[in-house]
């Protein structure tokens, strides 16, 4: 039996280990419900740099170094870097790769980038190409505002369905079972592996409003989750949690309803990183968080902790991305969306 299951899923023969993870986030994220969970918080949006773009790149570099350290790797151990972000030509990742000097594949999946990196990385390791690699994604509120929306000082009203781009970066160090050794820092806690990857298809139900990305991405998320369950012949009950990337409150409700329409009722098990990261009633973030950094810092902090501390045995992480640009939006195109899923499971 090969590794392919159904149409879109790969079951990894020798599931790679998540050897180390590091998350770093901005001040607003630090004030949110998960503030205590992140490995590091930056004091302000610039963090000593001259431009916000430089800050975002520094966030990513810091996260990658942190993940390697957590995995007890020495410099030069990481054989490959899979990195991406939201900016044009993924400059945060490019400049971070320049600073790190690790062989580098730049990837783009909008806000699904963390899941895309984890999935690609796990497949590359399982394929035997490398033994150690780092997958990472970053976003920064101000760099995203000026590229996708409007200048930061423009006095505009945000609609209630708008999401707040997260300032943050997360990095995951993946290792093949052959080279994996349990880091000293994780003594007494569980190892976590990546067992399945479901590659998403672009789904577009005609949402054109760039201020309402949750609604645009919900069908893609639902499609990937349902396909994954079908491909693996599993049910929702096989997972302790199904975590979507950053649909936000609006998209989360839509995704839940779309799944229910197909007869799948996830109940409390369906979570969303965009909903979890902010307290909407207190933080004025409207529909919740978004951006590559959002799902990266949530999945690699609190949710990974729940797996390591044996609260969860297995979770499905579905990174969701809105694959549009301001240009396509102005030209009247609707927003194509994608969801990539990876299964994170406690190793023995």
């Amino acid at each position: 039996m090969g590794k392919k299951r159904g149409k879109q899923t790969f079951a990894l023969a020798a599931p790679p280990y998540l050897a180390g993870a590091y998350t770093i986030a901005g001040t607003k994220e630090g004030e949110g419900p998960l503030g205590e969970c992140f490995d590091q918080l930056i004091p302000d949006a610039l963090w000593g740099e001259t431009t916000w773009e430089k800050t975002e790149s520094k966030l990513m570099t810091t996260a990658v170094r942190g993940a390697c350290q957590r995995a007890d790797w020495t410099e030069g151990d990481a054989e490959l870097l899979l990195a991406g972000d939201l900016l044009n030509q993924t400059i945060s990742a490019n400049f971070s790769a320049r600073a790190l000097g690790i062989p580098f594949f730049g990837i783009f999946g909008a806000c699904s980038t963390m899941a895309e990196g984890l999935g690609l990385g796990a497949m590359l390791i399982d394929g035997g190409y490398v033994d150690r690699l780092v997958a990472t994604a970053s976003s920064h509120h101000e760099t995203a505002e000026r590229q996708f929306r409007s200048p930061n000082e423009l006095g505009v009203q945000r609609p209630p369905e708008a999401q707040w781009t997260v300032t943050g970066a997360g990095a995951a160090a993946l290792a093949s079972p052959a080279v994996y050794h349990h880091p000293a820092s994780l003594a007494g806690r569980s190892a976590v592996t990546v067992t399945h990857v479901t590659v998403g298809k672009v789904v577009d139900l005609g949402v054109k409003d760039a201020g309402d990305m949750g609604s645009a991405m919900a069908p893609a998320a639902a499609h990937t989750i349902l396909t994954h369950l079908h491909d693996t012949e599993r049910t929702v009950g096989d997972y302790d949690a199904i975590v979507t990337g950053d649909l936000g409150h609006v998209g989360h409700a839509a995704c839940r309803a779309l799944m229910a329409a197909e007869g799948v009722v996830p109940g409390e098990r369906l979570l969303d990183c965009g909903v979890m990261i902010f307290d909407a009633s207190r933080q004025d973030t409207h529909a919740g968080g978004s951006g590559c950094g959002c799902s990266a810092v949530v999945i690699l902090s609190e949710l990974l902790r729940r797996l390591r501390d044996r609260c969860y045995r297995r979770l499905l992480f579905v990174g969701t991305g809105a694959l549009f640009s301001p240009m396509s939006s102005q030209q009247g195109e609707s927003i194509p969306a994608i969801g990539h899923a990876v299964v994170l499971e406690r190793g023995e």
């Binding site: 302000d44 949006a45 916000w52 509120h141 101000e142 000082e153």
Partner: peptide, 11 residues
Amino acid sequence: MAVLFDPKPKR
């Protein structure tokens, strides 16, 4: 104003 001030991050 562009010479004098830098844009501030949103809160």
